[in-house]
């Protein structure tokens, strides 16, 4: 898709954020492994291996670090257009909606990549710690990782919309961060709302608290809910771009 190609061409120094992503993945998984080793006897007694690492590493990844990365990437994508009145120029070509689509797709790729790195890291660490991984274990990691990525797309779509509405890069990131950390608050105060709170979806999808396979209705509900959130965010984004006057 040429809009994607164009967006990639514009993102010259995005690799720096990927390096940061690698570091953060490493940090989280390291923490997870450390936590396992620190409580190895308890976990062994319960027969928990990779799940312990997944849960510990995934918790902060899903709530803080992954949303942070998505927020920064989304903010950069919209920021470059706010500068120098580029949204106006794109609108004068009638290309602003197309470009928005390109950004969404690029962001989706970023989300998948970061999540893939996380899953890969957990796999590697699990093997290094000598866990016996059955095919079902690996399937779990991949599936939960993928579900989490869907949640990541929800955050991405919303943050892209925020980026269109809010000009300041810092405020953008602040909103994304506050909303993400807010999911901790939601869990604390109103745990039932966790199912619908957009910024909590990554954690829900990755099963970082539940640590087991979701049921079919749960999965369908999760996927539909997230798809709905994504569609609404994208729709509103398109509406704002179309109606905006320059």
């Amino acid at each position: 898709m040429s809009a994607l190609g164009i967006e990639r061409q514009k993102s010259k120094r995005a690799w720096i954020l990927l390096v940061v992503a690698v570091l953060l993945v490493g940090l989280n998984v390291f923490n997870g492994a450390g936590n396992y080793l620190g409580n190895a006897d308890i976990f062994e007694a319960q027969g928990l291996t990779w799940i312990a690492v997944w849960g510990q590493a995934g918790l902060l990844w899903a709530i803080l670090f992954f949303p942070f990365l998505i927020t920064v990437r989304a903010a950069s994508l919209t920021r470059m257009e706010h500068e120098q009145a580029n949204w106006r120029r794109l609108a004068s070509y009638g290309a602003h909606l197309r470009i928005y689509r390109g950004k969404i797709v690029l962001l989706a790729g970023f989300v998948l990549l970061c999540q893939a790195m996380f899953v890969a890291a957990v796999l590697v660490v699990s093997l290094a710690l000598g866990f016996d991984l059955t095919p079902s274990d690996v399937a779990a990691m991949l599936s939960w990782g993928l579900l989490g990525a869907v949640g990541g797309m929800t955050v991405a779509a919303i943050q892209l919309l925020v980026g269109i509405l809010v000009r300041s890069f810092a405020t953008n990131v602040a909103i994304g961060l506050v909303a993400s950390i807010g999911s901790l608050m939601v869990t604390l105060v109103a745990p039932l709302l966790e199912a619908v709170y957009p910024y909590a979806q990554i954690g829900v999808g990755m099963r970082v608290r539940a640590l087991d396979w979701p049921t079919l209705p749960e999965t369908l509900g999760y996927l539909t809910g997230n798809l709905l959130l994504i569609l609404v965010a994208v729709f509103v984004g398109r509406l704002v771009l179309r109606r905006r006057e320059h």
Partner: peptide, 19 residues
């Protein structure tokens, strides 16, 4: 590029959330 300072400051702060 404010992305630099925001990343440093926020990651620096978030690191403390471990354990």
């Amino acid at each position: 590029r404010q992305a630099v300072t925001l990343t440093v400051g926020i990651v620096g702060g978030l690191v403390g959330s471990f354990a």
